[in-house]
Protein backbone atom coordinates (compact mmCIF):
# COMPACT_ATOMS: atom_id res chain seq x y z
CA UNK A 1 0.00 0.00 0.00
CA UNK A 2 1.95 2.94 -1.22
CA UNK A 3 0.37 6.30 -0.86
CA UNK A 4 2.84 9.08 -1.47
CA UNK A 5 4.61 9.75 -4.71
CA UNK A 6 8.15 10.99 -4.11
CA UNK A 7 10.47 12.56 -6.64
CA UNK A 8 14.02 13.63 -5.85
CA UNK A 9 15.42 15.82 -8.62
CA UNK A 10 19.06 16.79 -8.96
CA UNK A 11 20.50 19.21 -11.53
CA UNK A 12 21.83 16.34 -13.63
CA UNK A 13 19.35 13.56 -12.99
CA UNK A 14 16.17 12.40 -11.30
CA UNK A 15 17.49 10.32 -8.44
CA UNK A 16 14.33 8.81 -6.98
CA UNK A 17 10.89 8.47 -8.52
CA UNK A 18 8.70 6.04 -6.63
CA UNK A 19 5.74 5.55 -4.29
CA UNK A 20 6.20 5.27 -0.53
CA UNK A 21 4.15 4.67 2.56
CA UNK A 22 5.70 7.39 4.63
CA UNK A 23 8.74 9.66 4.42
CA UNK A 24 10.70 11.63 7.03
CA UNK A 25 12.39 14.78 5.76
CA UNK A 26 14.94 16.97 7.56
CA UNK A 27 13.34 20.42 7.27
CA UNK A 28 15.05 23.60 8.38
CA UNK A 29 12.82 23.84 11.44
CA UNK A 30 13.08 20.17 12.33
CA UNK A 31 12.42 16.76 10.88
CA UNK A 32 8.90 16.14 9.71
CA UNK A 33 7.04 13.12 8.46
CA UNK A 34 4.73 13.05 5.47
CA UNK A 35 1.90 10.54 5.25
CA UNK A 36 -1.18 10.51 3.09
CA UNK A 37 -3.16 13.77 2.96
CA UNK A 38 -0.46 15.97 4.36
CA UNK A 39 -1.26 19.66 4.14
CA UNK A 40 0.33 21.60 1.21
CA UNK A 41 3.72 22.60 2.49
CA UNK A 42 6.99 24.09 1.26
CA UNK A 43 10.21 24.29 3.19
CA UNK A 44 13.98 24.38 2.98
CA UNK A 45 16.02 21.28 3.72
CA UNK A 46 18.86 21.27 6.22
CA UNK A 47 21.69 18.70 6.20
CA UNK A 48 20.13 15.57 7.61
CA UNK A 49 18.82 12.12 6.92
CA UNK A 50 15.96 11.41 4.58
CA UNK A 51 14.12 8.24 5.51
CA UNK A 52 11.74 6.46 3.14
CA UNK A 53 9.34 3.78 4.35
CA UNK A 54 8.02 1.23 1.94
CA UNK A 55 8.72 -2.29 3.13
CA UNK A 56 9.99 -3.42 6.53
CA UNK A 57 13.43 -1.84 6.22
CA UNK A 58 13.41 1.88 5.64
CA UNK A 59 15.74 3.37 3.03
CA UNK A 60 18.04 6.10 4.29
CA UNK A 61 19.81 8.88 2.43
CA UNK A 62 22.10 11.71 3.49
CA UNK A 63 20.72 14.94 2.04
CA UNK A 64 22.41 18.30 2.34
CA UNK A 65 20.37 21.06 0.83
CA UNK A 66 17.39 21.88 -1.30
CA UNK A 67 13.69 22.51 -1.16
CA UNK A 68 10.73 20.25 -0.61
CA UNK A 69 7.20 20.72 -1.86
CA UNK A 70 4.34 18.65 -0.50
CA UNK A 71 1.21 18.97 -2.58
CA UNK A 72 -1.67 16.58 -3.11
CA UNK A 73 0.17 13.46 -1.91
CA UNK A 74 3.08 14.29 -4.12
CA UNK A 75 6.43 15.13 -2.54
CA UNK A 76 9.02 16.83 -4.72
CA UNK A 77 12.52 17.44 -3.47
CA UNK A 78 15.00 19.49 -5.48
CA UNK A 79 18.51 19.16 -4.13
CA UNK A 80 22.11 19.15 -5.23
CA UNK A 81 23.54 16.42 -3.05
CA UNK A 82 21.88 13.23 -1.90
CA UNK A 83 23.70 10.00 -1.13
CA UNK A 84 22.96 6.49 0.00
CA UNK A 85 25.26 5.10 2.69
CA UNK A 86 27.24 3.01 0.22
CA UNK A 87 27.88 6.07 -1.92
CA UNK A 88 29.58 7.90 0.92
CA UNK A 89 33.36 8.10 1.08
CA UNK A 90 33.98 7.63 4.82
CA UNK A 91 37.60 8.75 4.87
CA UNK A 92 36.71 11.88 2.96
CA UNK A 93 33.88 12.68 5.32
CA UNK A 94 36.16 12.17 8.32
CA UNK A 95 38.77 14.46 6.83
CA UNK A 96 36.12 17.07 6.13
CA UNK A 97 34.90 16.79 9.72
CA UNK A 98 38.38 17.29 11.11
CA UNK A 99 39.07 20.22 8.80
CA UNK A 100 35.82 21.93 9.73
CA UNK A 101 36.44 21.37 13.45
CA UNK A 102 39.93 22.85 13.18
CA UNK A 103 38.54 25.87 11.42
CA UNK A 104 35.88 26.43 14.02
CA UNK A 105 38.42 26.15 16.84
CA UNK A 106 40.87 28.60 15.34
CA UNK A 107 40.46 32.25 16.18
CA UNK A 108 41.34 33.45 12.70
CA UNK A 109 38.89 36.15 11.70
CA UNK A 110 39.09 35.51 8.00
CA UNK A 111 37.29 32.21 8.36
CA UNK A 112 33.72 31.99 7.24
CA UNK A 113 32.21 30.36 10.31
CA UNK A 114 28.85 29.74 8.75
CA UNK A 115 30.46 27.81 5.94
CA UNK A 116 32.65 25.80 8.28
CA UNK A 117 29.66 24.99 10.43
CA UNK A 118 27.70 23.79 7.42
CA UNK A 119 30.65 21.67 6.29
CA UNK A 120 30.83 20.13 9.76
CA UNK A 121 27.13 19.37 9.74
CA UNK A 122 27.35 17.72 6.36
CA UNK A 123 30.28 15.59 7.47
CA UNK A 124 28.45 14.55 10.65
CA UNK A 125 25.35 13.59 8.69
CA UNK A 126 27.40 11.49 6.31
CA UNK A 127 29.22 9.73 9.14
CA UNK A 128 26.08 9.06 11.16
CA UNK A 129 24.43 7.47 8.15
CA UNK A 130 27.35 5.13 7.49
CA UNK A 131 27.55 4.13 11.16
CA UNK A 132 23.89 3.34 11.65
CA UNK A 133 23.40 1.76 8.26
Amino acid sequence: MSKIHLEVIQPHQTKIKDDFEHVIIPGIEGDFGVSENHTPFITIIRPGILTLFKDETPEKFAIHDGFVTVDNNKVTIVCETIEKSDEIDITRAEEAKKRAEDRLKSKNEEIDFRRAELALKRALVRLSLTQNG
Binding site: I28, E29, P40, I42, T43, I44, F67
Partner: peptide, 18 residues
Protein backbone atom coordinates in the same frame (compact mmCIF):
# COMPACT_ATOMS: atom_id res chain seq x y z
CA UNK B 1 -2.50 27.50 -0.26
CA UNK B 2 0.90 26.37 0.89
CA UNK B 3 2.39 26.66 4.31
CA UNK B 4 5.88 28.06 3.99
CA UNK B 5 8.44 27.26 6.63
CA UNK B 6 10.16 29.19 8.18
CA UNK B 7 8.48 32.10 6.31
CA UNK B 8 7.63 33.32 2.82
CA UNK B 9 10.48 35.76 2.88
CA UNK B 10 13.18 33.30 3.83
CA UNK B 11 11.98 30.85 1.21
CA UNK B 12 11.93 33.59 -1.47
CA UNK B 13 15.47 34.55 -0.58
CA UNK B 14 16.82 31.00 -0.70
CA UNK B 15 14.83 30.09 -3.76
CA UNK B 16 15.95 33.24 -5.57
CA UNK B 17 19.56 32.34 -4.97
CA UNK B 18 18.95 28.83 -6.17
Amino acid sequence: DFIYEPSDDVVIEELGKK
